[in-house]
Design a protein around this nucleic acid. Structure first.
Lengths: 340, 340
DNA sequence: TTGTACGCGTTATCAC
DNA sequence: GTGATAACGCGTACAA
């Protein structure tokens, strides 16, 4: 019963012609007689012949696969980026191989090595936190030196020559902080992560700049730097207990929504007594009670743009080494956790 | 500078030996002299030789790739399943190619066809709603007849012979409904989707059974059936306006969290006046205010089990056609949207 | 101990 | 108009 895939050779044998005739007939080559073409095509259709992708990949040195290596897929932001990549890539006939580094340098390296040996035509990546902390980008450099195109998004580094896509994190944080100040908030806190994460650093800069531009000194006790993007309920609770604040900017939506809860537990009214803004316009932000004002990162568009950049490079024969960095504008989405 | 990938042939030429000698030397074959082996291995290490995956795939007729076709990746449940698959698959040296059907029959078919032509060793799938509505499973049957193993999870069908993994949705709904009744709720509503979705059907059955077992008649006006899993705020609002209820069971966490909001908007206290339970133990459930009591579906374990089943089949030479269906037990996770 | 030949499935080139 | 041959990169049975 197991009618396994039929090959050119099978058709050739059955129809008593040569393999190359079959191949040509199936591509409607001019040099094959109408008669033979029809016979071959009918037979192929009947047995549902489809060329073997692997064989074609070997021949063309093109897999039509894109490797995506990201820290995780639970955070809504990465999720939407993957969706954007999928969308564009599939439309262009590419498959997407997703690998998770889980914020681990080693896993990132292993995944890349697995894929780099012919499995994919190019990489779309966002660096693991460990990689950004170590500042070791040799695995990326090797890959680019082999001529495999790479597109970095969101968590990037300037040490690797490749295309990049980011949002203007600094501007996003600046705008959000400004918004909080405009509401008359005096003690705007920041919940972020250590500076080694490129995005956290930029956001902290934006926050700082907004304060200074408004003539407000930056006070360390209003800034909580967590070691990772992982949720740490204890740390945030402690921060609340020891800090006097009337607004918070959070580096992601999870911290922000959790902050709303703690604030409410402590008897604050949101947004009357305290305003809260997060990064990432995800499910949490939309469906939290109250809903969360956020800096939208446009992950899906970021994914599409990354995919477009990569595929353009892959399909571009001329190997000109021109790399561009695309910077998207973040958008402030106003909801009920701020006074609007 | 572009030192593109080195091949066996390159090494052979450089060292003036034959390709097969190089091949054997690299696998430490006994039949090669210590001398040659060392020379070859040193050279290979120096130039960072790695065998080409595509060539090996073509030869072995094994790609070490798993195709995952799911309706979407935004819903937390599918997200966790993908994570579980990744985890197990990567540990076994497999890559995961993710394709999204976006609930479309056509996309599901196209994606499968793309992958079935040699790109993957097997499929892990959850059916699109359109597929379940049409009840057309020919694309699945074709693939299995070609000898490509398939594992279906969550949204399955009995019309295809393959391994399956599900949770006991009926039991989950039953337990949840029972919980609501035990709290003294008299008018337990259900927000679900049309019956063509296998999981929705089972959950509705569990809900119905729990009511009947408690001697409570099932009343149609307490049941809202939405056409899809897509959020429809309008419909849920209308339902609230026209229905007198003191508890709701929702088929996913989004409907549930949104119901909490509407309830609060309408002046209900949650859980004092109305209790709400959802399916899927995701971010929303955890961080909603109040947090949401849910039926946990254990997506990550489901993913791991699916991957294990598939890889076992892929690597099992004997083609015995024994298919099993694994049924996981759902767990009721109590939080603040019910009185506990 | 090393090398030759062949096959995986496809296509491009060249010969008939 | 059709077919043989080589090539993509690798591994292996067999020959030397």
């Amino acid at each position: 019963m197991l009618k396994s895939k039929i090959t050119l050779k099978d058709i050739a044998r059955e129809l008593e012609v040569s393999v190359s005739t079959v191949s040509k007939a199936l591509k409607n080559s001019e040099e094959i007689s109408r008669d033979t073409k029809e016979k071959v095509q009918a037979f192929a259709r009947l047995y549902n012949y489809k060329p073997n992708n692997i064989a074609i990949s070997l021949k063309n040195k093109r897999t039509k696969n894109i490797g995506v290596v990201i820290p995780d897929i639970v955070h809504y932001f990465f999720n939407t980026v993957v969706r954007g990549i999928e969308k564009y890539a599939n439309a262009k006939g590419y498959n997407v191989i997703v690998c998770l580094s889980e914020e681990s340098f080693d896993k990132e390296v292993i995944n890349m090595e697995m894929l780099a040996n012919g499995s994919i035509d190019g990489f779309i990546m966002s660096l693991s936190s460990e990689t950004q902390a170590k500042k070791d980008y040799n695995h990326l450099k090797e890959v680019t030196q082999q001529g495999i195109p790479v597109v970095l998004f969101d968590r990037i580094t300037n040490e690797v020559d490749c295309d990049k896509v980011v949002i203007d994190d600094q501007l996003g944080a600046y705008t959000a902080t400004q918004k909080l100040l405009q509401q008359g908030r005096k003690r705007v806190a920041l919940i972020t992560t250590d500076d080694y994460l490129s995005v956290a650093k930029s956001r902290t800069e934006g926050y700082t700049k907004a304060l200074l531009d408004a003539g407000i000194p930056v006070r360390d006790e209003l800034i909580l730097k967590l070691p990772t993007m992982e949720m740490d309920e204890e740390a945030i609770r402690d921060f609340f207990n020891n800090t006097d604040m009337d607004a918070i900017l959070c580096v992601n939506e999870i911290f922000a929504v959790f902050s709303i809860r703690i604030a409410m537990e402590k008897g604050f009214k949101v947004p009357e007594d305290i305003s809260i803004i997060g990064f990432t316009d995800g499910m949490l932000a939309k469906y939290a009670n109250p809903s969360l004002t956020v800096v939208a990162q446009h992950g899906e568009r970021m994914g599409e743009i990354s995919a477009k950049m990569l595929i353009d490079k892959v399909e571009d024969e001329s190997d000109e080494e021109i790399f561009q960095t695309k910077i998207l504008e973040p958008t402030l989405v106003l909801r009920d956790s701020t006074i609007n």
